[in-house]
Every structure is written in structure tokens, then in C-alpha cells.
């Protein structure tokens, strides 16, 4: 019985199965020359692996694992965005999620404070921010007065904060962004809390136009509750103005890169 070189090599490399493999194995068993060729091939493989295998047990550089972890985080973020785009196919899930969210908001809500129905995850985050903010903060002594009507353009620190701050980042400072969204005309709008007053500002060619501002309340008894309902009012107004969901963290950053120009 003869074994060709190709057959022999294929056997050595584990390419043969079943009857073919048995035939070559039998030939090797009956032929010392073939047996020593097999041994030489096995030693060669062992030498090569002995040379390179140690690399595979070295610690992997962190730069590599970190690069992959960063990509995984990016995917997770994009998934959240994608989910919104696929909303129609997942209505049931969303309805259930919304119901759960409403329950959570109700549970978290102190008595006599009415919050509007939030319109998405971003707003749910904003809701918790509002609660944290208004139930934890000290109302400024100089409670600002309500202004509305006319085209009030934000300037100074307010304009700067509206340009730079992110709702998702809990940055220190007097100005906090509660949520960001797009209005029907495509302009970006942001609900902010500037300490003494809160409002909604929308960006157009002139700058940040204040759509609505409310005082957060005078330093009187019950000021906290008023402050809470002021923010609730703004969020309700924002919900009416907005098209779609509030911006998520990634969208917000993207909008900031574009200087909030639609």
C-alpha cells in the first residue's frame, strides 16, 4: 500500500478524515521511514509553536483592549439612537417602557407636585434632574422676575452656557441644561435653569432667543414647590414644541459641534 507525499502531508496537517486517515495511519504504522518522517514533521510543528506561542501568553497591551472597549461603548450609544429610529416596529415595548417610566415618575413625585407626561428617555433623565435640582437647591435670594414676549436674545453667561453645556453632563455652575430638543422649524431648543430663573431658548440666526422664562420663585415658604412646578411647566411646554424625542447625549454633542445651527 502506497501513500503519496500529498496524502502524507495532508494527514500530518489533520486534513484527512475517516477511511483516508485510517489508511495513511496504517501505512505509517507499517513503514519505519514514514514513521520517522511523521516524527520530524511533528517536531517541526512543536519547534515553531515553541518559538511563537510565548507571545500568546504575554499580557495584552491595554491600548488594544481599550480600543475595543471604546468601540463597544460607541455601539451601545448608537443602539440607543437606532432604537428610536425603529420605534414603529417596537411600539409595544415602548408603551410598556413608558408605563414603567410613568410609574417611576409618580413614585418619585412628592405630593401636590404635578409633572407633565415626559416624552422620552432624555426627558425622564431630565425629570430626575428637575427633581434633584429643585428639591435640593437653595432658591436664590434675588428671585428674578418673569419675562416673556418680544425677542429676548440671551447674552453673556447665559448665551455661553447655552452654547457649551450639555444636559447629560452634570457640570457644576449656575446654569444647568435640563433637556435639548428640536422644534418644528428644525431649530435647536434647550430648557435651562439659571438659578433664579428658568426658561426655554431656541437658536436661530440671531442667537439664542428666549421663548419663555419663569422665575424660579422668591425665597418664601413654599418656594420649592413653586420652583418645581415652574420647571414642570417648562418641560410641558418643551414637549409641545418639540418634534420627536429629546436629544440624547451623542446627538447633543453633535449639535454642539455644529454650534446648534440646524
Amino acid at each position: 500500500m502506497t501513500v503519496s507525499d500529498d496524502e502524507f502531508t495532508a494527514y500530518v496537517d489533520g486534513e484527512l478524515t475517516g477511511a483516508e486517515a485510517q489508511r495513511v495511519a496504517a501505512a505509517i504504522a507499517g513503514d519505519p521511514a514514514l514513521a520517522s518522517r511523521l516524527e520530524a514533521q511533528q517536531r517541526l510543528r512543536a519547534l515553531l509553536r515553541g518559538h511563537l506561542d510565548p507571545v500568546a501568553v504575554e499580557p495584552v497591551p491595554e491600548s488594544l483592549t481599550q480600543m475595543i472597549a471604546a468601540a463597544a461603548a460607541e455601539d451601545a450609544e448608537r443602539d440607543m439612537t437606532d432604537t428610536k429610529q425603529h420605534e414603529p416596529a417596537r411600539v409595544l415595548d415602548f408603551a410598556a417602557a413608558r408605563a414603567r417610566r410613568d410609574d417611576q415618575v409618580r413614585a418619585a413625585r412628592p405630593p401636590r407636585l404635578t409633572l407633565p407626561r415626559w416624552w422620552g428617555t432624555g426627558a425622564a433623565i431630565a425629570a430626575s434632574l428637575v427633581l434633584g435640582l429643585f428639591f435640593g437647591m437653595r432658591v436664590a435670594d434675588d428671585g428674578a422676575s418673569v419675562t416673556s414676549g418680544g425677542a429676548l436674545v440671551a447674552s453673556g453667561m447665559l448665551a455661553k452656557g447655552l452654547d457649551e453645556k450639555l444636559a447629560s453632563a452634570n457640570e457644576p455652575g449656575k446654569l444647568r441644561i435640563l433637556t435639548s430638543f428640536r422644534r418644528e422649524d428644525g431649530n435647536y431648543c434647550r430648557v435651562y435653569d439659571a438659578g433664579a430663573s428658568s426658561g426655554i431658548a431656541c437658536k436661530d440666526a440671531q442667537g439664542w432667543i428666549l421663548q419663555r422664562t419663569v422665575a424660579n420663585g422668591a425665597p418664601e415658604r413654599g418656594a420649592y414647590r413653586q420652583a418645581g412646578s415652574a420647571a414642570g411647566e417648562l418641560m410641558a411646554a418643551a414637549q409641545t414644541m418639540a418634534i420627536g424625542e429629546p436629544l440624547d447625549a451623542a446627538q447633543e454633542r453633535a449639535a454642539r459641534r455644529e454650534k446648534w445651527n440646524k
Binding site: L52, V55, A69, D75, A76, D79, D82
Partner: peptide
Amino acid sequence: ASTSQDRFCEELTALLPRLRRFAR
């Protein structure tokens, strides 16, 4: 999609030792 992406990143991480050996 998310499961497959997760799996991609997990599998790629698990492959790193072998990839380093091949690179060497």
C-alpha cells in the same frame, strides 16, 4: 444588532493573544 456587535467586541478581545502571536 446589539447582540452581534457585543459578540464582535467580545470575540475580538478574546482573539488578541492569538492575533499578537500571528503578528509576531
